[in-house]
């Protein structure tokens, strides 16, 4: 009896101490954090040349100007490559948070490209956690440069297609990495005897060095018969200023669309065949995102 009384007394004191504990919020806040999407694995929808796991938000219009100069190794005669410039202008649009479409035109071979990019999975934490993001991109291209071949190439000869799967993960707030296998099919390859369908394995990474600056890396290795071509390799810096992202890079690839950089990159990065280049991305907001 007495034991019980003491036990209850102690119990009530403990209970009152618990109730008066300093941390009022304890026990009220959810112990299991709600599912949260991991965002900002890359600063832009392109690592450098390749699609990244980032998508445009619904209603965002991304106007991109990409520029590649000539090889720095060409020396003072070509002003270290700055005399030569190749560019691609594109407009990408976010149909929804998970679907982006885009159209671009490159000066190189006067090539037009269209693509659709669909997010399948988005990395998340919390109750329903997903360890990585998965994105599928598919596109068609056609070059429109005048041909001086005796038999003019038809539309099928001038067109090419690609399909790319991008799987990536933001490992920490500073470091993200992705793998991007891609199939490129060309109607008529640049060099006779080259494979029409090329598979390439790609890898990209980002390392944030400050809140608005990051180092980037973008590489693809094509498998198959591509005479005279080398692996496209680019390293760069992303600088973000409000609605703009500036991507400055050194790369051996001239092409800025999938067909061009995968199948038509020449020059050995490690022998100084490097070109300076930049991507400028400006996002315009169309429509209203949310209303409360």
């Amino acid at each position: 009896m007495i034991k019980l009384t003491i036990a209850l007394f102690v119990y009530s004191i403990l209970l009152s101490m618990n109730l008066q504990s300093q941390d009022l919020l304890k026990g009220v806040e959810d112990s299991v954090p709600a599912t949260q999407k991991v965002t900002g694995a890359f600063k832009s929808t392109r690592v450098i040349n390749a699609h990244s796991i980032e998508m445009l938000h619904k209603g965002d219009l991304d106007f991109r100007i990409m520029h590649r100069f000539g090889f720095i190794s060409s020396g003072i005669k070509q002003f270290y490559g700055l005399d030569v410039a190749s560019m691609r202008i594109s407009f990408d649009y976010g149909l929804s948070d998970n679907t982006t479409i885009g159209i671009g035109r490159s000066t190189f071979r006067k090539e037009l490209d269209l693509f659709i990019k669909q997010r399948i999975l988005q990395q998340s934490t919390g109750a329903r956690s997903i360890p990585f993001s998965l994105v599928l991109a598919a596109g068609g291209l056609v070059w429109t440069e005048e041909s001086f071949a005796p038999v003019k190439p038809g539309f099928g000869d001038r067109s090419s297609y690609y399909i790319q799967l991008v799987a990536g993960r933001k490992f920490s707030s500073a470091f993200s990495m992705q793998l991007s296998p891609i199939f490129v099919h060309s109607g008529s390859p640049v060099n006779t005897g080259d494979d029409q369908t090329i598979f390439a394995m790609g890898g990209g990474a980002r390392l944030k060095v400050s809140r608005r600056m990051a180092l980037t890396f973008d590489y693809h290795h094509p498998f198959g018969n591509l005479s005279g071509s080398t692996d496209p390799l680019s390293v760069g810096v992303d600088i973000e200023t409000g609605g703009h992202v500036f991507q400055l890079q050194f790369s051996n690839a001239t092409g800025m669309n999938e067909r061009a950089y995968i199948t038509q990159t020449t020059g050995d990065f490690f022998k100084g065949d490097i070109r300076f280049g930049f991507n400028l991305s400006r996002i315009f907001k169309t429509g209203k995102h949310k209303t409360w």
Binding site: D23, L24, L25, E29, A34, Q36, T39, G40, H57, K58, D60, D97, R211, R212, E240, G242, G243, I283, K285, K288, H289, K290, W292
Partner: peptide, 23 residues
């Protein structure tokens, strides 16, 4: 006492929301 998760703030522009959290 009040507690609020900063990632739970919703903005009109999604890009602002991203910059708010990231930068």
């Amino acid at each position: 006492e009040f507690a609020v998760l900063l990632k739970g703030f919703e903005f009109e522009k999604a890009l602002m929301q991203e910059h708010f959290n990231e930068n």
